[in-house]
Design a protein around this nucleic acid. Structure first.
Lengths: 183, 183
DNA sequence: TCTAACATGTAAATCGTTACATGATTGG
DNA sequence: CCAATCATGTAACGATTTACATGTTAGA
């Protein structure tokens, strides 16, 4: 039921790799896993506080410069166990993709609708850009094959995302080509 | 920005095809477009009320049996115009897919993690079932090609969903096959 | 007659985004 | 010295889910 607060597990998973501040976590949601999940700092700081109250993480304060206090968060043993359990239990709920473009398509009834070509071309640009970005990221994160061994999951999901975008682009091209010639 | 209340447009789009009750709309979110968006009746009834206050829909009351009053909603001219605008403006925001399984994969570091085979097999079952269901739906909704003409968008998104699931299943099979042999 | 499906609503809680608010540090 | 980035929080709003609540109708 519900969404079962997945954010907490993502935070635990990230902290389990290395201690991080709330700020670091926020950045990770832009870069590392931004492809698969997003969260703002306004969600992250309160969640860290709750995780600490529940004993899943602790923090130590480090001081930069003269007075800036940073809270560096660590996963506790029970936190690591909670993470392990989340990964180990089944994942039976396939989340429906909420794709606004696809939704709009549903309401277009004729393949002669004059808006179709431009709509598809826009998505083609967007998804092509995303595909380029993902392939770029693959070369940046995994410059040589030795690194794949130690971050296999990360490699898999990048590869998966590339394949997914590749399919999307291919489908858009086919759909565009199959439209009736303009009158 | 934000999510800009897409629900209102979906409701307008559905009502634009034919007048429906709140109950009918709720069912449509389970079957018709459940693949691409979900909403519960607790979201739909208040939204219908707001759309009516804003003049985008109206309702007429029809009576079934002795006393059951149904509210049959219609799109108004301004409602149809609002729908037209939503479809016509660009759709530049690609929503990141929030796939819990993919998220879990990210936190698995070794391709020898003993949980990997069972995790992938579970997803393989789920996505294969979904693929079967989508293909079944295609034959039910479009038993002959003549129907595609009149519901082209619906055809496209079903075809897209089938291709997407097909890719997912293929990728899962490949990933499973590429795992190191059990020790 | 009884049960599944029809039909419509509200309340409470949670999740997520945007905006508000403040201050420190680093490098040019 | 100034701007970009680092760093941490809260408030308000909107979106979504789950639960509460009630009554009718059609068909077996």
């Amino acid at each position: 039921m519900a969404q079962k607060n997945k954010l907490q597990f993502i935070i635990l998973g990230l902290l389990n790799q290395q201690p991080l501040t709330g700020y670091d976590l926020t950045k990770a949601f832009d870069t590392e896993i931004g492809e698969f999940w997003q969260a703002q700092h306004s969600q992250i700081y309160p969640q860290l506080k709750r995780l600490e109250e529940q004993g899943y993480v602790t923090h130590e304060i480090t001081v930069s410069g003269a007075k800036l206090e940073k809270k560096l968060y660590h996963v506790t043993a029970t936190g690591a166990e909670l993470l392990r359990q989340w990964i180990t239990v089944g994942t039976p709920d396939l989340t429906a993709t909420k794709d606004e473009f696809i939704l709009k398509l549903y309401f277009i009834h004729s393949n002669r609708d004059p808006r179709l070509p431009m709509m598809i071309q826009e998505q083609l640009r967007l998804h092509t850009d995303k595909l380029v970005h993902l392939r770029q990221r693959m070369t940046v994160v995994f410059p040589d094959k030795a690194l794949i061994e130690a971050h296999y999951g990360h490699y898999l999901i990048l590869q998966h995302a590339i394949g997914r975008e590749n399919y999307y682009v291919t489908w858009l091209k086919q759909t565009l080509a199959a439209l009736p010639a303009e009158q």
